[in-house]
Write a protein that binds this DNA or RNA. Structure first.
Length: 653
DNA sequence: TAAAATGCATGT
DNA sequence: CATGCATTTTAC
């Protein structure tokens, strides 16, 4: 008798295992490993995937028959199934949670198309693009020969990274292997797609983006599953794409928090990618302009080699970076930043504009005055009704009025009474891009001012020519011919954060902006509004992201934070947490930290708190298993209140 | 949402 | 303490 091992699509943790079903003779021709089926499960008809076919079962009782083969298309490949299982285990989630991210919803119409012919592999790429990196040509050769080379690539400032990543894919493809590249957002994906169109044969690659129409999304997924397209370019969910004969996985800007999956089991694209390279025995490239502590650990542990520019190439490519003194007015008072732009920043901007070049101005937040605080005691101003933060939006209200309002519940705050000191006046604690643009317009009359940010719309690029381009981090447009200068005005907001990653994240944002500036030899200058003695500022001035990443890693080791340790965050109501912890069998050397009250999220009710569980890195698997076990017991008992479990969450205070 | 297991009142 | 019926639990 033919038996199908089926993974059913139910979110219950205690049912996270395959179930055997008998294949009725009339379905035997259609059923295939990896295909979608419907089965009767606890009375209900549920969706599932066939993991494998066999002729034996461990199950004692009578096997139920498969109800239906939804489609014969093998969408769950053995390699992806193994990856999904590993990810679920590593992050304490369930297999079906991961599959929901990995396999897009089916669209029957897309399956009707006959599979296209796979294009011929291209020739190996010209290594000239990597000539400035001593280890570059060897990496290309390794990829073309199908060897599992692993690198942390730190791109030189001004690098045409989409072209380089396309060349890495071309190398893998020339050796007959597939490749997978993950980037943070749609704008980066557009650039990568354009570069791939130049370097790779037509039809050999597909672009997977989460915001694509369901039909197009499934069609492209099928191109990959059927093996017609062997290179996948995409955003974070693409780490699970079923690329045939995977030879290379790569990620761009792994420090960008868009790579952190906000849906369970909350796995980070870089970490999934590293797991995948391990399972598939393929090459891996963790690439960025800056460097994360996680990437530093990959180097330190010997898992990856460093791919960095040589000294002279770095000198030739870097802009000149100026920092301000510690006592500068600008460094201390955000409100003084633009209204009284320090003479240095003013001069640098004026010079660039006079030379006919655009100037990039990086500000921390979009909007007009997104953050407000009490004028007297400087405590952050909160909504009297829901305790959400007050702000002034970028778009003026009726009659051009700018009234403070709650950023969660949108209630206008006509009056303000500070709960700490009973002050009644508000001041801007954070200035937004719109406000900065307004003030710069006054400081440089005659210069065109353009804004790129979430609220006002993100620009992909700006033309050469004098203009002030105000952008929030991550929304900096690429300038044709490079920017003449960049002013980094968001220093205090970034460095002042209590966040564990504040230093690393600040350098990442600064470098991503500064990398768009022309080299110093072409007049490119960067002014950073922060104390020159600060290590993050030093790393920028010397353009040494590796040094800062090593320091960050050492700090985390000292403080006992990831990636040096493994930390699980447990959040929920106090009662649910108490219940959860009572059932949790902590690994022997685990610490339990907390509880700390959690900021209520918009639309969330009741008191929530959070515990952290810390274990040594080597105990991570034990911890994840123990957490999954408790989730299983709770789901079997049908405990109504959910406890959110996140392993190595990005935000750790 | 189907079968099996369990709970519970009822009648001898 | 068997029987019938309702409710809860299981999960192939």
């Amino acid at each position: 008798m033919l038996i199908a091992r089926v993974v059913v699509d139910v979110p219950l943790a205690h049912l996270d295992r395959p179930f055997d079903y008998a294949v009725p003779p009339e379905l035997a021709d259609d059923v295939r490993p990896g295909c979608r089926v419907r089965v009767r499960f606890a009375g209900q008809l549920v969706d599932g995937f066939v993991l494998e076919l066999g002729d034996t079962t461990e199950h004692q009782g009578r096997l139920a028959p498969l109800a239906k083969v939804v489609s014969s298309e093998p969408v769950l490949t053995p390699e992806v199934a193994a990856l999904a299982r590993a990810v679920a285990d590593r992050w304490g989630g369930t297999f079906s949670d991961v599959l929901r991210l990995a396999i897009p919803p089916r669209r029957a119409s897309a399956e009707k198309r006959p599979p296209a012919e796979a294009p011929e592999p291209p020739p190996a790429p010209d290594p000239a693009g990597f000539a400035r990196y001593p280890a570059g040509p060897a990496l290309l050769t390794a990829l073309a020969e199908g060897r599992p080379a692993r690198a942390v690539w730190t791109a030189l400032p001004g690098e045409d990274w989409p072209a380089r990543l396309a060349e890495l894919c071309q190398a893998a493809l020339s050796g007959g292997r597939g490749a997978l590249v993950v980037v943070p957002d749609g704008r980066d994906l557009d650039r990568l797609e354009a570069a791939a169109a130049r370097a790779l044969p037509k039809g050999s690659f597909v672009v997977l983006r989460a915001d694509a129409a369901p039909d197009a999304r499934y069609r492209r997924f099928l191109d990959v599953a059927r093996g017609t397209a062997t290179v996948v370019l995409g955003t974070r969910a693409a780490v699970y794409a079923p690329v045939a004969d995977l030879g290379l996985v790569a990620i761009w800007d792994d420090g960008d928090d868009l790579h952190a999956e906000p849906r369970g089991p909350y796995a980070h694209a870089r970490d999934v990618l590293v797991h995948r390279a391990h399972l598939a025995g393929c090459a891996a490239v963790v690439a960025a302009t800056a460097r994360t502590a996680e990437a530093a650990l990959l180097l330190e542990s010997g898992w990856a080699h460093e791919l960095v520019g040589n000294r002279s190439a770095l000198r030739a490519a870097s802009p000149r970076v100026h920092a301000l003194g510690a006592d500068s007015e600008l460094a201390r008072d955000p409100a003084a930043r633009t209204a009284r732009l320090p003479s240095l920043a003013h001069r640098v901007a004026r010079e660039a504009l006079a030379a006919g070049a655009p100037v990039l101005v990086q500000v921390p937040r979009s909007g007009y005055a997104p953050g407000l605080s009490c004028e007297r005691c400087r405590a952050p101003a909160r909504c009297a009704v829901c305790a959400g933060p007050l702000g002034i939006s970028a778009t003026p209200g009726p009659g051009g009025s700018r009234v403070p309002a709650c950023r969660w519940c949108a209630r206008p705050a006509a009056t303000f009474d500070c709960p700490h000191c009973h002050g009644t006046k508000l001041r801007a604690s954070v200035l937004g891009a719109s406000r900065t643009a307004e003030e710069l317009g006054r400081a440089f009359p005659g210069a065109a001012v353009r804004v790129s940010g979430r609220t006002s719309g993100v620009l992909a690029s700006v033309p050469a020519g004098p203009a002030l381009v105000v952008a929030t981090p991550g929304a900096e447009p690429v300038a044709e011919g490079g920017y003449g200068a960049a002013l980094l005005l968001d220093s205090w907001a970034l460095l002042g954060r209590a966040d564990l990653r504040a230093g690393e994240e600040t350098l990442r944002r600064w470098m991503n902006a500064a990398a768009l500036v022309r080299p110093a030899s072409a007049g490119g200058q960067v002014v950073v509004a922060a104390d020159a003695a600060h290590p993050v500022v030093q790393a920028l001035v010397r353009w040494d992201p590796g040094w800062l990443a090593e320091r960050e890693l050492a700090d985390r080791r000292e403080l006992g934070f990831p990636p040096a340790t493994r930390i699980a965050s447990l959040s929920g109501s106090p009662e649910a947490l108490a219940d959860f912890l009572a059932a949790l069998r902590l690994p022997a050397d685990a610490d339990l930290l907390g509880p700390v009250p959690e900021q209520p999220r918009p639309g969330q009710e009741g008191v929530r708190e959070r515990y952290l569980v810390r274990t040594p890195r080597g105990e991570g698997a034990t911890l994840a298993h123990a957490l999954a076990e408790v989730q299983g017991v709770r789901s079997a008992k049908k405990v109504p209140e959910h406890v959110r479990v996140q392993l190595d969450p990005t935000e750790l205070v």
